[in-house]
Design a protein around this nucleic acid. Structure first.
Length: 591
DNA sequence: GCCGTTTTCGGCCCGACTGTTTTCAGTCG
């Protein structure tokens, strides 16, 4: 098929199969298998099509021989005969209704039958009309509340973007900080943590959830419900509450007494796959896990104030939330072999910051001066900082002009260094450039221009749709120059806007590893690129990476922490990240 | 349909919430 099918669409297809089987048969475990495969596809950090290209479909948990072969058929022919046969027994409208929050297989099927709607075309609108005239509440098993819920659910579909309304990690992270600061004003909040994908630092976060350790749940919930940015309190009970903010973000809060907080934190941090695996292990030991603690046989639930003790009870080390995806971390924790993940405070510099130096680029210029950048870097405790503006535009300048601009910039940097000796002694300034790798693999400045640079970040900013062999060759060619040390935002993905490029990663990893080239982990909110799963592959291949902010404004230098989160999710340790090296070490590598 | 240092057969996570119900079904995370 010509169009690349998104993970979201594939997940929907698998969910449809689960729903069909749910109605059709009592094979509840086959239903569960399809549902799990759907979730796995939905949460996959790489495109399933890419995995298929690489023959790695079965690395997705929950995708075995059968589903892999169906997906193979899907990618080869654009359809799956078996799926069409199974789902063909049901009105197509039913699969549309599955999109409605709160509507599952049974409800969706019942609606199509009772309302006699079959075609998927206009199914949503017809349902909306039925709800408005009160036809749904007339159906047995439904009443006013259900009808209202369906109407509200239908409204949700319209509001959501095509990929669902998830936020990128830095966006969600900043919202979470605001909430945490607000909640800490309440003296009864002993401890507060984000939960779920936010705590695991996934690149995209859905709703925000928080856990609070407190002995005074009522007061904490009340304080939560007085959050200044609130639009409405959607629900509030003894230990949980849900608010909706003015920008329509749903935020949940769950409280627990401090002596049982560890289990709550563990349970709601997930991931679901991680927890299921844990419970299976627990079950074999005769234990049962829940958000309240651990039940041993018929005895009462044992409580845990910390997660550490909870994991210890199961015979394993505490697992950093970033690793809790059931991709081997549980086994590693049992063997006491978990990696010592890189930390934000170990970062000693940032190599990708756009200053406002008038370099006349074709892409956007930064807004902060060189002095502001170095001063900020020093405040952040960095030992060094690299400025890397986009190269001067090639369409607007001759080679000669580009060389002149780069020479002048070097002069300005040298002048800055000599007139700010004290500052530069504590935080050294490297003079770099972010250079386009053009579609043919050449770099967008003339050879002589490199004489005026300490290093170059080379990146792709155009022609993202090249076939894999050509794209791979392009990157290797771009990295080939001795001054080209960093491959900027390697896949070029833009979260929710553009899929990453397809490369032969083994070739790229191999080249980087042998030639001392570094892959960037960009902390730029819509990039977070390399993505975490590729970070992990790179770590396995012994490739070094560098976490950069790609800041265009001064404050954006603070986004570095989110890049570190991506590195951590990719199991990266200090030794894998080049900008954890001291200035003296890095100087030797660059000069 | 998936999965495996108790298994290639025989298991498959746990609980809350909601709405509709007199004891539960469906959905969600």
């Amino acid at each position: 098929m010509s169009r690349k099918m998104s993970n979201q669409e594939i997940a929907r297809l698998l969910k449809g199969m689960a729903a069909a089987y749910q109605i059709k048969s009592d094979q509840q475990f086959r239903v569960k298998a399809y549902e799990e495969a759907a979730v796995s596809v939905e949460h996959a950090t790489s495109s399933v099509k890419d995995l298929w290209d690489d023959g790695k479909l079965e690395t997705l948990s929950g995708v075995g021989k059968s589903i892999a072969s169906y997906l193979d058929e899907l990618f080869r022919t654009g359809k799956v005969k078996h799926f069409e046969k199974v789902m063909g027994e049901f009105p197509p409208a039913m699969f549309e209704y599955l999109k409605i929050p709160g509507v599952g297989a049974k409800t969706a099927y019942k609606l199509t039958k009772e309302l006699k709607i079959t075609s998927s075309k206009g199914a949503i609108n017809r349902l909306k009309k039925a709800a408005k005239v009160g036809a749904i509440s007339q159906i047995k098993g439904f009443a006013e509340e259900s009808e209202k819920a369906i109407l509200e659910g239908l409204g949700e579909i319209g509001k959501r973007g095509k990929e669902g309304q998830r936020m990128n990690l830095p966006f969600a992270g900043e919202l979470a900080k605001e909430m945490i600061n607000y909640m800490k004003q309440c003296p009864h909040v002993k401890r507060i943590d984000p939960l779920g994908s936010m705590r695991r630092r996934v690149a995209t976060v859905g709703d925000l959830d928080f856990g609070v350790a407190t002995k005074k749940s009522k007061e904490v919930i009340e304080h939560f419900c007085r959050y200044p940015k609130i639009k409405e309190v959607a629900a509030a009970g003894g230990n949980t509450a849900r608010i909706v903010t003015r920008d329509n973000r749903q935020i949940d809060l769950k409280t627990m007494s401090p002596n049982a907080y560890g289990a709550l934190l563990q349970h709601y941090t997930g991931s679901k796959q991680h927890n299921i695996h844990l419970r299976e292990i627990a079950q074999k030991k005769g234990l049962s896990l829940s958000e309240y603690g651990i039940k041993m046989g018929k005895k009462s639930v044992k409580k845990y104030d910390t997660e550490e003790k909870f994991y210890q009870e199961l015979g394993m080390d505490w697992i950093p939330p970033e690793l809790r995806e059931d991709t081997g971390e549980i086994e590693a924790a049992q063997e006491h072999q978990l990696p010592k993940l890189v930390k934000f405070k170990e970062i000693k510099g940032d190599f990708h910051i756009h200053s406002n130096y008038p370099i006349e680029p074709s892409h956007d210029l930064g807004t902060a001066s060189i002095k502001e950048i170095v001063t900020k870097a020093r405040k952040m405790g960095y030992q060094y900082v690299g400025i890397a503006e986009h190269n001067p535009s090639i369409s607007q300048h001759s080679d000669k002009q580009i060389i002149a601009i780069l020479k002048r910039k070097k002069d300005v940097v040298e002048q800055f260094k000599s007139s700010n000796k004290k500052l530069v002694r504590s935080t050294y300034l490297f003079n770099g450039l972010e250079i386009d790798i053009r579609p043919d693999g050449s770099l967008a400045i003339p050879e002589e221009g490199f004489d005026y640079l300490d290093f170059a970040v080379v990146s792709i900013h155009s022609s993202f749709r090249q076939p894999r062999p050509k794209a791979t060759k392009r990157v290797l060619s771009g990295l080939n120059h001795p001054k080209a040390r960093i491959l900027g935002h390697p896949t070029g993905r833009m979260i929710y806007q553009r899929e990453g490029m397809e490369f032969d990663w083994d070739q790229i990893f191999d080249f980087c590893q042998k030639n001392n080239k570094w892959l960037e982990i960009s902390a730029w909110p819509t990039r977070l690129d390399l993505p975490d799963h590729l970070v992990r592959e790179a770590v396995k291949s012994g490739v070094k990476m560098v976490v950069n902010s790609d800041a265009h404004q001064l404050e954006e230098m603070d986004l570095m922490e989110y890049g570190v989160s991506v590195a951590r999710r990719g199991w990266a340790q200090k030794k894998d990240i080049i900008n954890t090296l001291s200035y003296n070490q890095i100087k030797k590598l660059l000069c």
